[in-house]
Simulated scan of single mutants.
Amino acid sequence: MTSPDAGSGTLGMGGFLRSAADMRTAAAAGRFAADPESGRALVAVLARRRTWAVRQFNTMYRLAQEPPLGSSPGANVFKPFFASIANHPNEGISPQWEKFIQVIDETIRAVNESMKNYHDIDVEQAGRLNSTSGYSHET
């Protein structure tokens, strides 16, 4: 199975990585903000997902072993094929799973960055509203 993202891998992790990086770039530029309560909740969920993903990754070595399919001619053809699916350098399950963990890490960094922006953006927006309405906003 090939992803609709050309050249990005079986599971389309290239697209996910780009999205996470774009999210972090937007946060770093102050174009994306999350309130602290929501941001902390999202980071907590992402951290739990990352813990799960790392546990799964640590057991994937078993997928690289040839399965015990027997010794028939058909089994002898399929055994090395199944093992190669896990470890193919570009399309394998293990490399794609590593990219998935990278996506989670990048997204956590983006959310943390966006929480830093929340107060600044809130004050800026209040200033814009005040300038158009004639009211003042004390920070």
Rank of each mutant, 00 (worst) to 15 (best):
N87G: 14
A28Y: 02
R40E: 03
L11W: 13
Q125W: 10
D122S: 15
A44C: 05
A47F: 05
D22G: 03
E91N: 14
V103R: 04
S84F: 10
F32L: 15
H119T: 10
A44L: 07
Q125Y: 12
M1E: 10
I121S: 06
A27L: 01
L46C: 03
M115S: 03
T2D: 11
F100C: 00
T139W: 09
H88V: 02
E98Q: 13
A83S: 14
V123W: 03
T10R: 14
S94N: 12
R55G: 08
R40L: 04
L46P: 00
W97I: 04
A126P: 11
F32P: 00
P80T: 09
A21Q: 03
G127V: 05
A64T: 12
K116E: 10
Y118N: 08
L17P: 03
A44M: 07
I121R: 11
R62C: 04
T107P: 02
Q125K: 07
A29R: 11
P67V: 04
Q125V: 12
T107K: 01
R18C: 00
A26N: 15
E106D: 14
T51E: 14
F78N: 07
S8N: 10
E66M: 13
V77R: 11
R48E: 13
S3G: 08
L17N: 02
L69W: 13
T132S: 14
R48H: 10
P95C: 12
T59K: 15
L11C: 12
E98R: 09
H88I: 04
F100G: 01
D105G: 01
G92Q: 08
G74Q: 13
V103E: 00
I101M: 11
E66W: 09
G12L: 04
S133M: 10
F82S: 11
R128T: 06
Y135R: 15
L63I: 09
M1T: 14
A28I: 06
W97D: 05
A126S: 13
V111L: 01
F16S: 00
L129E: 12
T132F: 12
H88C: 05
M115D: 01
E37R: 14
K116R: 13
G74P: 05
S133G: 08
M115Q: 08
I93H: 06
Y61A: 15
F32G: 01
T107A: 06
V123C: 09
I121G: 06
Y61I: 13
R18Y: 01
R31G: 08
W52G: 08
P4C: 09
A29F: 03
P95R: 01
I93W: 09
E98G: 05
I93V: 15
V123Q: 11
A20R: 02
N58S: 12
A20W: 02
P89L: 07
F32Y: 07
S19M: 12
S8W: 14
V77G: 04
Y118H: 15
A53R: 01
V45M: 05
V43Y: 00
S114I: 00
T59L: 15
A26W: 04
D122V: 12
V43S: 00
E106Q: 11
G92C: 05
Q56E: 14
A83C: 06
V111I: 15
P68L: 13
E106M: 04
M115K: 03
A41K: 11
H137R: 11
T2W: 07
A41N: 11
S114V: 00
P89E: 10
K99M: 13
P36V: 04
S19A: 15
A41W: 06
V43D: 00
A26M: 11
A27E: 00
G70T: 07
G74T: 13
G74E: 13
R31I: 00
V54L: 13
